[in-house]
């Protein structure tokens, strides 16, 4: 490097070929994919025109059916709370079983695969499967969000356990404690604070999704929302959207508060 730079014609910058190739590939991809998906300028312009009309039909929001709205919100809230409590409760043992530093591989591997399955599917897809299997209503929504909670909380919980200091665990083990005691005395104290953090994040996330599972029949405000959409009842749709956003912001605030308390 130094020998080359000593010559008369020194280069100020090294050409970054991988970056240039990457940029070119990106541009080509955008053009190609845009064409595949038929994303044309005409459609976009047409949409803007249509969008203006759509927006004008959204306002003013119509809150006259507020009792229907409130019922839906309340059910969403119930779904979120029940699903979070159950999901977090199930995640505790599941996460423990998935931790590779505590469990033999023949336990942790299948449990990790189970968690991966729970995490891979969007809660709405899980909800639609439950709706088809056990029927319409809040129960399907609750079960779907329990699955989502396991996918998130159990995964992070297992990772947190894998990061703990094994010295403390060894120390408890050396006293001849049973496995249950090792877990409660050596493992849980190290990860409980983080576990509560995950749980409050999940409460927030479940609240968001509980307003959506209704779209596929899983109970909550989502059903009301989808019905209003299909009936072109756009001013009521707008009211529902405003209510959902308010609920979610409230939930975010609450989750932040809870985290602060348990920090």
């Amino acid at each position: 490097m130094t020998a080359a730079s000593a010559g008369g014609d020194r280069r100020a910058f090294r050409a970054n070929w991988p970056a240039r190739a990457g940029l070119l590939a990106l541009v080509l991809y955008v053009l190609y994919a845009g064409q595949i998906l038929d994303l044309s300028w005409d459609r976009f312009v047409f949409g803007l025109d249509q969008g203006g009309r759509f927006l004008s039909r959204l306002v003013p929001p119509d809150f006259t059916r507020w009792s229907l709205l409130l019922d839906g919100l309340l059910e969403s809230l119930q779904i979120a709370i029940i699903a979070t409590v159950l999901g977090v409760a199930v995640s505790l043992p599941v996460g423990l079983c998935a931790a590779r530093n505590l469990m033999p591989w023949w336990v942790s591997t299948p449990v990790r695969a189970f968690i991966a399955v729970c995490r891979s599917f969007h809660p709405i897809i899980v909800a639609i499967v439950f709706v088809k299997a056990i029927g319409f209503g809040a129960l399907a929504g609750i079960l779907a969000l329990v699955v989502a909670s396991i996918g998130f909380v159990a995964k992070l919980f297992a990772e947190a356990i894998e990061e703990i200091s094994m010295k403390q665990v060894e120390a408890v083990r050396a006293t001849g404690a049973s496995f249950a005691n090792v877990v409660t005395m050596g493992v849980l104290p190290q990860v409980l604070a983080r576990f509560i953090g995950f749980a409050t994040y999940q409460l927030d996330s479940n609240l968001r999704n509980s307003t959506m599972v209704g779209i596929v029949g899983g109970g909550g405000i989502g059903g009301t929302l989808f019905a209003a959409f299909q009936r072109f009842d756009y001013d009521f749709l707008c009211a529902i959207l405003i209510a959902i956003i308010a609920l979610i912001m409230l939930g975010e605030l609450l989750a932040t508060r809870l985290r602060a308390i348990f920090q």
């Binding site: 038929d38 994303l39 459609r43 929302l225 959409f229 959902i244 956003i245």
Partner: peptide
């Protein structure tokens, strides 16, 4: 962030019609 992607999808379906756009 407060509007779920499904809701965004509903809104854009109403505007641009069904499809990948």
């Amino acid at each position: 962030r407060s509007v779920n992607s499904l809701v965004w999808a509903l809104l854009f379906v109403a505007v641009f019609g069904p499809g990948a756009l």
